[in-house]
């Protein structure tokens, strides 16, 4: 619940940062409202502060990824964790981007286009995806023998559907396109904060949700992620992103960020998120613990 309040506050904080940011000895990391980029921010923080002279400042709960991109571009932020599917979010002209659900192709496009247009360094995947999935309660799935999204069709007319604030309106991979791809719609579809989406399932106000693939609530609430049998959802491979000019100034940062590529798989990340979201532990503490376990810091 606090997160909702924070996201409003974060908008204000962003405004402040543009006024007082730009300290040469500070690396600014920004995160969205969910937990995996927050954990990544603390992992990067731990490494940078361990291996360099830099201070790290983390701004959390920025409500949408386009705001992160703008902030990095304007040098208010330096580093963020972004997802390859971001490339389809209206940043580029339609004729430059080719919509695809192929993991490799999507990542390559993101790396190329953000490099060309924003002068960003978009690293290879950290090793996990955090993509949209369609999830229902396991009990319901078992009772009705539902394995794939297509299997939902007979029941869709009675199912209450919840998703995040933007999915309803997303063009390529949103609800509209979903209806075209799968040929059915739900009884009632509403957009809300991600945390509330899970609360909605728990309090039996929602039947179907767009869970993010690493969310530990999938386990906690005993949800079943349905197979995307029409290969509809695009990949959202997580990568660290920064500006090229920052790396030119300090190759040390590039070393640190590169070292993380391919090191965290989905299972690991889900476990870390579980510690934070379900066991209510501090994000920084969990990140620190991870780094120690991996022997990356003392």
């Amino acid at each position: 619940m606090k997160k909702i309040i924070f996201s409003a506050v974060a908008v204000l904080v962003l405004g402040f940062m543009s006024a007082c940011g730009g300290d040469d000895n500070t690396i600014e990391i920004g995160t969205q409202t969910y937990t995996d980029p927050k954990l990544m921010a603390h992992i990067v923080e731990g490494l940078i502060e361990d291996q360099t002279e830099y201070e790290v400042n983390i701004t959390k709960d920025i409500s949408a990824s386009p705001q992160l991109i703008t902030s990095i571009d304007q040098e208010e932020l330096d580093i963020a964790t972004l997802y390859s599917g971001e490339v389809y979010n209206n940043h580029f002209d339609e004729d430059e981007v080719e919509y695809s659900t192929d993991t490799e192709k999507t990542l390559t496009q993101a790396q190329q286009l953000f490099n060309e247009h924003f002068d960003f360094k978009w690293y290879d995947s950290l090793g996990f995806q955090n993509k949209y999935t369609i999830a229902i309660e396991n009990e319901f799935a078992e009772a009705n023998n539902i394995e794939t999204i297509s299997d939902l069709e007979p029941y869709a007319g009675e199912l209450r559907f919840g998703t995040d604030g933007s999915w309803l309106e997303r063009s390529n991979d949103g609800y509209r396109a979903f209806q075209e791809a799968y040929g059915f719609e739900f009884a009632d579809a509403r957009g809300l904060q991600i945390e509330l989406m899970y609360e909605g399932v728990e309090s039996d106000e929602l039947d179907v949700i767009t869970a993010y693939s690493v969310d530990p609530q999938i386990l906690e609430l005993d949800l079943k992620v349905l197979e995307d049998d029409k290969n509809f959802f695009p990949p959202y491979s997580a990568s660290l992103v920064t500006r090229n000019n920052l790396l030119e100034d300090d190759p040390q940062i590039d070393e640190i960020l590169s070292s993380l590529v391919g090191t965290i798989d989905e299972e690991t990340m889900t476990q870390l998120i579980y510690e934070v979201d379900i066991n209510e532990r501090d994000e920084q503490e969990v990140a620190q613990e991870y780094l120690q376990e991996q022997g990356l810091i003392e």
């Binding site: 949408a64 386009p66 979010n89 209206n90 995040d164 604030g165 933007s166 309106e169 997303r170 063009s171």
Partner: peptide, 14 residues
């Protein structure tokens, strides 16, 4: 809802 969705994937029209 339109504003939040628009913010989410960079749709200025929304």
């Amino acid at each position: 809802g339109m504003v939040i969705a628009g913010l989410g994937f960079n749709d200025k029209f929304l």
